[in-house]
Write a protein that binds this DNA or RNA. Structure first.
Lengths: 190, 190
DNA sequence: CCAATTAGTTTAAAATATCAAACAAAAAGC
DNA sequence: GCTTTTTGTTTGATATTTTAAACTAATTGG
């Protein structure tokens, strides 16, 4: 954070000399000079006085972009950074259309069963198994999911979840669709 | 601009005592005390040191919203529990509009950071912490999430995830929106 | 060209911030 | 209850910033 440079750039942008800014701010010109040269580290009160000379808020002062940059490109840069900073992401579901979102943490005791397959309205559902094992039936095809496995399907297809194992199973799921706006129905409907 | 109050609120939000923050920042506790009581007006260098203790950038510090607003996170105990045929469901987010769905399993090593807050296109994001601790910033408000806690927010708000803890953190998240149709961008963009 | 103005820099007192340590008050253990 | 720990506050010594004024350099105008 080069405070001095920041102040100087902004001051010049306003077309003010050190003395002119100092006068408006109620400080001496030497103060401005030293701050800009980073000879001193101004007190917060002094900084406030100086900014009043523009005038400019503290937030604005610190968030002002000194270099003109393209917003889109800035985003791309941020995105690259994030991956470089060690965040590992596993995409479980992909290619999605339209609709609302609900996320559920589902705990399946041994033997639990969502019951006979049922059809929800237009929507999608994705999920991943956190703990235990789950049997998933979608469109009359049977899948066995273990921790780390994920799934994605259209809720227009008949589906069912069962825990046939000996231990409790935990699934984190999210689903979209008209029913999502009615949590109760969604929950029971699962 | 009540600098003292601002610092105090943010410090407490981070769950730090004056001494603890001082230690991390490399200043004395008396400095923190006096700044918070507005007894002194800290030098910019001191302020920088203090913010490093969080850590937090100056921009973020001054733009952070101090007031509590719309609920963004849903604590473990706040989440609606539902039972359907022996399946325990915890509703984490609710009331959702329209859009597609993507689900991610996100692994945050200690120190991981999604980087500067960024704004995605129209959409929503919900999630829950499976393991470890995560610091979530949404719309310049900070939340600390622990296993069982969940969150929900509009991706039009600037947001950021960080793991400030010593252990790996795992979050299951789902998000909707136009970007969801582009898995790569979505994944990295988080 | 030479004074007069304006620019930014530097210097030694005055004002202020920071540190180290002691203080008070509350919370946590026992 | 009592001690120990943790919290935030205060105080005198030290370090830093701020001022006021002098200084340099460049520019403007006559």
């Amino acid at each position: 954070m080069d405070l001095g440079e920041r102040l100087q750039v902004i001051r010049k942008r306003h077309g003010l000399s050190q003395r002119e800014l100092a006068k408006r701010a109620g400080v001496t010109n030497s103060t401005i000079s030293m701050i800009e040269k980073n000879t001193v580290s101004p007190s917060f009160s002094s900084l406030l006085k100086v900014l009043k000379g523009f005038p400019m808020s503290v937030e604005e002062f610190f968030t002002l972009d000194l270099v003109k940059s393209d917003q889109v490109i800035f985003r791309a840069h941020e995105q690259a950074e994030m991956q470089a900073q060690g965040v590992a992401l596993q995409l479980i579901g992909h290619n999605i259309p339209d609709r609302g979102l609900s996320m559920l943490k589902e705990t399946y005791p041994p033997g639990a069963d969502t019951g006979a397959e049922m059809i929800k309205y237009e929507g999608e559902e994705a999920g991943t198994v956190i703990e235990g094992e789950i049997e998933l039936t979608v469109d009359y095809k049977i899948y066995h999911l273990q921790p780390g496995d994920g799934y994605f399907f259209r809720t227009t297809l008949p589906h069912r979840f069962r825990n046939l194992g000996q231990h409790t199973a935990i699934v984190i799921s999210a689903n979209t669709g008209p029913t999502s706006t009615h949590p109760d129905q969604t929950a029971i409907g699962k």
